[in-house]
Amino acid sequence: MLASHADRERAVDVLRAGYAEGRLEQPEFEQRVSRAYTARTVGDLALLVADLPQGPMPHPAPMTPVPPTFLAAPRPPTNGKAVGSAVCGVLCLVSFGLTGIPAVALGHAARAEIRRTGEGGDALALTGLVLGWLSTAAWAAMLTLMIVAAALSA
């Protein structure tokens, strides 16, 4: 089979790697490279690199295990109720406070589970609690003002 330009370049790359590893002397390397560029068939190229490894030989690095001290500590899973509390707390802003009570209930349940199981997500639960209590307090204040305004107008 006739050799392509890519075949010749691959053979020259193998020769360069062999020269860099000290497997070939300078005159022999130059002679083989010139023969590679003038080779007509893939068989001619194979003869030029037959006594060389096909590419740079990796030097095996010693595999030493990383001491557990330097390994990253595994993150505990995030509590699902904490995520739900945070989502309900954020939705208080767009739902005009309707999700405030679920945010508070989920936040308290999540913080109790987090303390008991060691899961993550305490900040999410706290966010849901704060937003839920703020929206609930705002609704309570608004209802109180409406009742006082109705009583004063009557």
Rank of each mutant, 00 (worst) to 15 (best):
residue 138 A to M: 12
residue 137 A to M: 10
residue 118 G to V: 07
residue 37 Y to H: 13
residue 140 A to Q: 06
residue 35 R to D: 10
residue 92 C to M: 01
residue 124 L to W: 00
residue 53 P to T: 09
residue 6 A to K: 14
residue 64 T to V: 14
residue 83 V to D: 00
residue 3 A to P: 01
residue 16 R to D: 12
residue 140 A to P: 01
residue 64 T to F: 09
residue 108 H to R: 14
residue 139 W to Q: 12
residue 76 P to I: 02
residue 89 G to V: 02
residue 40 R to Y: 13
residue 73 A to F: 01
residue 59 H to I: 15
residue 85 S to H: 04
residue 69 T to F: 03
residue 29 F to C: 09
residue 91 L to N: 11
residue 104 V to H: 02
residue 132 G to K: 00
residue 92 C to W: 02
residue 35 R to P: 05
residue 122 D to S: 14
residue 151 A to K: 06
residue 143 L to E: 02
residue 68 P to Q: 06
residue 21 E to R: 12
residue 10 R to I: 11
residue 36 A to R: 03
residue 130 V to N: 08
residue 109 A to I: 09
residue 12 V to N: 03
residue 135 S to C: 11
residue 113 E to M: 09
residue 115 R to E: 15
residue 23 R to L: 15
residue 19 Y to L: 11
residue 93 L to M: 13
residue 120 G to D: 15
residue 10 R to T: 13
residue 81 K to Q: 15
residue 1 M to C: 06
residue 11 A to I: 03
residue 128 G to D: 01
residue 8 R to H: 01
residue 11 A to Y: 01
residue 31 Q to Y: 10
residue 101 I to T: 07
residue 106 L to Y: 07
residue 20 A to Y: 06
residue 42 V to E: 14
residue 13 D to Y: 10
residue 53 P to I: 06
residue 152 L to K: 12
residue 64 T to K: 10
residue 86 A to N: 04
residue 151 A to N: 04
residue 72 A to S: 14
residue 87 V to P: 00
residue 48 L to C: 11
residue 5 H to C: 00
residue 129 L to V: 06
residue 133 W to I: 13
residue 56 P to V: 11
residue 1 M to K: 14
residue 80 G to H: 03
residue 17 A to W: 05
residue 7 D to W: 05
residue 128 G to T: 02
residue 116 R to N: 10
residue 32 R to S: 10
residue 86 A to P: 01
residue 94 V to D: 10
residue 136 T to H: 05
residue 120 G to C: 11
residue 105 A to N: 03
residue 24 L to C: 03
residue 48 L to N: 07
residue 88 C to E: 02
residue 154 A to T: 01
residue 3 A to V: 02
residue 111 R to V: 06
residue 51 D to Y: 02
residue 103 A to C: 06
residue 146 M to K: 08
residue 11 A to C: 14
residue 103 A to M: 04
residue 94 V to I: 14
residue 20 A to S: 10
residue 45 L to S: 04
residue 138 A to Q: 05
residue 138 A to W: 08
residue 148 V to L: 14
residue 86 A to D: 05
residue 62 P to M: 13
